[in-house]
Simulated assay, not measured.
Amino acid sequence: VLISADYSQIELVVLAHLSGDKNLCSAFINGIDVHKSTAALIYGISPEQVKPEQRRFAKTVNFGVMYGMSAFRLANELNISRTEAKNFIDQYFSTYSDVKKFLDETKRMARENGYVETITGRRRYIPEIKSSSKIVLQGAERIAINTPIQGSAADIVKTAMIKVQAALEKSDTGAKMLLQVHDELIFECSEDNAENAISIIQREMENAVQLKIPLRVSVERGKNWGEFH
């Protein structure tokens, strides 16, 4: 059988860890649907009252902030007016004020140092951050914001691959790692040893690094990848 082990919303988890925002961290620590939680906070309603459309709006903004999404682009994505989009972003940053502080501080440090870092200290140099061109500068700021998040997510996945491989080699499961697809690892294993292999994979992935909030991994198995995608 194939085993698929997938980090749940790893980039948002990393954002919560790096920013330390209490509202965002709380949603993950308590195992709440973070998009529904965001919608509830923004609209001032309970999570049970959140409608699918409101959750979709919140999800778009949750991921959009990691890419420096502007009100113009959000308006196009959600098919709403630019004024509505700006109000939505403003409300988001009011709800997750420490996320805003983290993003602003990251851009400031990028301008000061000329680079940003991931959680393991890998650097990405961004010389364009000092550009006099507004368009080039805005692009550089988006890179500065996104790199610590996506780069740290990549660090976690690569660390997990090393730890899972070492643990599987010590086991008698015979499971083999086949592929990495973004935040997902694919393994091959005999049906008889699948349960044991899943236990090892999940344990090592969820403990690959220690963050302020728990890493959660969902696992599926089947005869082909299409069964879980």
Rank of each mutant, 00 (worst) to 15 (best):
V1S: 14
V1Q: 08
S4E: 14
Y7C: 02
S8M: 05
Q9D: 08
Q9H: 09
I10A: 07
I10P: 01
E11Q: 10
L12H: 07
V14N: 01
V14S: 00
V14W: 02
A16N: 10
H17A: 05
L18S: 00
L24V: 05
L24W: 06
F28Q: 10
G31R: 14
V34M: 04
H35N: 04
H35W: 03
K36M: 00
S37C: 08
Y43C: 07
Y43A: 08
I45N: 03
P47I: 01
R55H: 06
R55I: 06
R56E: 05
R56N: 10
F57L: 12
A58V: 03
K59M: 10
K59C: 00
N62F: 00
Y67K: 00
Y67M: 05
Y67D: 04
G68D: 11
G68M: 08
S70M: 05
F72T: 14
R73E: 13
A75L: 03
N76K: 15
S81P: 06
R82K: 14
R82D: 02
T83G: 09
E84D: 14
N87D: 13
I89L: 15
D90M: 08
Q91V: 11
Y92D: 05
F93E: 08
F93M: 03
Y96L: 06
Y96T: 02
D98A: 12
D98C: 01
F102M: 12
F102Q: 11
D104N: 15
D104R: 11
E105R: 13
T106F: 09
M109Y: 07
N113T: 07
G114E: 06
V116A: 01
T120E: 15
T120A: 10
G121L: 08
G121P: 12
R123K: 15
R123Q: 02
R123T: 04
R124V: 12
R124H: 06
E128G: 06
I129D: 01
S131C: 02
S132R: 15
K134Q: 13
I135P: 02
L137S: 11
Q138I: 08
Q138V: 02
A140L: 07
I143H: 00
T147H: 07
P148S: 08
I149M: 00
Q150Y: 01
S152L: 09
S152I: 07
D155H: 08
K158A: 06
A160G: 00
M161R: 04
M161W: 10
I162D: 04
K163A: 13
V164M: 03
Q165R: 15
A166H: 05
A167C: 00
A167H: 09
L168F: 07
E169T: 12
K170F: 10
S171V: 04
D172R: 14
K176N: 11
L179Y: 13
Q180M: 12
V181H: 13
V181G: 09
H182C: 02
D183Y: 10
E184T: 09
C189E: 04
C189D: 03
S190L: 11
D192N: 14
N193Y: 01
N196K: 15
N196W: 01
I198F: 04
I198W: 06
S199R: 13
I201C: 05
I201F: 05
I201K: 00
R203H: 04
E204T: 07
E206C: 10
N207P: 09
L211C: 08
L215Y: 01
R216H: 04
V217L: 03
S218R: 10
V219L: 06
R221K: 15
R221G: 11
R221M: 14
G222A: 09
K223N: 15
K223C: 09
